[in-house]
Design a protein around this nucleic acid. Structure first.
Lengths: 345, 345
DNA sequence: ATGAAAGCGCTAACAG
DNA sequence: CTGTTAGCGCTTTCAT
């Protein structure tokens, strides 16, 4: 590695040894006073903490982890930084992990399996104890690295028959089907589907739409998808194209809330009244869906709860509570439908 | 630290020593073959890489960092995971840092100085080489830790007279003022300001609105702010209150695009035509502003470019190129106004 | 081009 | 309750 003149200019680092020397004890005692306070005398504890503060001691956790074999670090890999779904997953994870003394790291994969692999390699080489992944598609090398490392892992968001270890989420196919059936129940026959950023979860939602349409004997013609990133703007463009190609469309199921919001704006541009002239629904039930006009119908997914359960599973695995958390575990946290608003008045 | 039965079950880790033993050479040679390939014979290089692959060797970077004193790790601390502004900042940072062999970590502060402090402590104890912060408000302890560590640091987004070291962003006050002046130039007299999540940047934008209003001799009465998080829904609620309390309002400057989007929906709910009956503007110029109807006027901030410059400054500092990047450097990357749409037809 | 020795800062295991 | 002894896995010197 190259030299680093910048770092060279820093003050010499304060170490355990410095404190030990100043106090006339050994490093071990200082380490104990700091990390297992109950194992030293109250007086010692006092002197050490005082001296540490005075010298501005900051532990070197690389050394600590290297020696102990664990880091109390857990990494969360999210596909997108700007998708509120993942920020709520994060929120659910953070509190329980912090309470148990674990620090949560965030990594950004940009929906790329290859980037996921790179990140996991880096994290593992830095000794993380646990890993939270979104989805169930991973490269072979990713699987192998995780297996070798023995790192605890939980996969989030989507149903998975054979998890790497544990998984928690919801059945995206069933959710897509349920919303479509709700639309059919409202009497709509021409129901379109808009999808962007076609990852596995979106494909499963689409599968649900297909299943419901087929079961009802309806045409699956009005379908528009793109691999491009999802956005409000994309929602407007896709809806524009759909209404142009299939003017008979009565209702549109968008694969997420951003797309649906864009659809609302497009209706406004065209002077279409929602839901009277066109019904719209999104997916996820983000906070935003209650800020639009009309309020956006959506499939509400328990993102926060998924994070909380994922944290609990991880902690159970890390504490060795194996029986309570069998390998291959899959927890389905379900979903609910938020109707009314853009779906029916 | 507690025992970890889970980890105990893993296969023994493959180390440099294992490869060395298998090849009948020393660890140093293996290390060199892997990290400074030009320093060993081509034959050796070949044998080592081959054997490493075969055994599934994965370097332990904790050990590496501990020994070498640097980690090639750079941490980015963002206030919010769901704000697209920060995801674009991240995008700007990532490529140049990766190209230079650095790995970018993300931390989430939730707009809390205390959480920022906690995260920085963790990162520093894990030996990061660089730090990218948003904003200029940091706890005294944060400042001290950074100073002691000698870690390179750059502060992003807002203007700062006395940076910790380097800073890059834009003058939020000037931007707020410019947009307000544009509204005044359109002939509006009753111009309101809506603000949520009142952090320093939002306060600076508000200051810009005040300055412009004062200079024009206009009333600063129509002002509504909240410390609650910003959201589309909040935008609608705030606008509702504003129009109720100050029905004469002709134009509203929202502190960000989410709020403004909520404002658009609120206008729709009230049957107000934008911009004819009410003009609206947001801040940041997110992609979304081109997906609304009408398109949202906004102050376009160079988030991506800020990330790119921040990366360049950090790399310059880390490579010891001190002269080219003086301490205390402040780079203003400016802004531009996106008008039309929701502001004027 | 390769090796030997020393150590990064900390913790584990066992003594006393 | 405190100390001793040994590393964790890697990267430095400095030799050869």
């Amino acid at each position: 590695m190259p030299s680093q003149p910048h770092k060279a200019s820093r003050l010499k680092r304060v170490t355990l040894a410095d404190i030990a020397a100043r106090l006339g004890v050994t490093k071990v005692t200082v380490s104990r006073a700091l990390n297992q306070p109950e194992k030293v005398s109250a007086a010692m504890r006092e002197r050490v903490t005082e001296c540490a503060r005075e010298l501005g001691y900051m532990p070197n956790r690389q050394a600590g982890s290297l020696a102990s074999g664990h880091s109390r670090l857990i990494a969360l890999l999210i596909p997108s930084l700007s998708n509120a779904v993942f920020s709520e997953l994060h929120r659910g994870l953070e509190a329980p992990l912090a309470a148990a003394g674990y620090q949560l790291l965030i990594g950004h994969t940009g929906y790329s399996m290859q980037e996921e692999e790179r990140l996991i390699e880096t994290w593992l080489s830095f000794g993380i104890d646990g890993l939270v992944l979104c989805g169930s598609r991973h490269s072979p090398r990713t699987r192998e690295m995780i297996a070798r490392s023995g790192c605890a892992v939980v996969e989030c968001m989507e149903k998975r028959e054979t998890p790497l270890d544990m998984a928690v989420g919801l059945d995206q196919h069933a959710a897509g089907r349920a919303m479509t059936e709700a639309m059919i129940a409202l009497g709509h026959r021409h129901i379109g589907f808009l999808g962007a950023r076609m990852d596995r979860r979106v494909e499963q939602r689409l599968g649900g739409w297909r299943a419901a349409m087929e079961a009802a004997g309806l045409s699956q013609q009005a379908l528009l998808t793109t691999d491009a990133p999802s956005s409000v703007r994309m929602g407007g463009e896709l809806l524009d194209e759909m209404l142009t190609r299939w003017p008979e469309t009565q209702a549109v199921f968008c694969c997420n809330d951003d797309l649906a919001a864009g659809g609302l704006f497009e209706c406004q541009r065209r002077g279409l009244s929602v839901p009277d002239q066109l019904a719209l629904a999104g997916f996820n039930g983000l906070e935003m869906t209650r800020g639009t006009w009309p309020p956006l119908a959506s499939v509400v997914t328990p993102r926060r709860e998924i994070g909380e359960r994922a944290a609990a599973l991880l902690l159970a695995r890390l504490s060795g509570d194996l029986d309570a958390t069998p390998h291959g575990l899959w927890e389905d946290l379900g979903f609910s439908l938020q109707t009314g608003g853009s779906l029916s008045s």
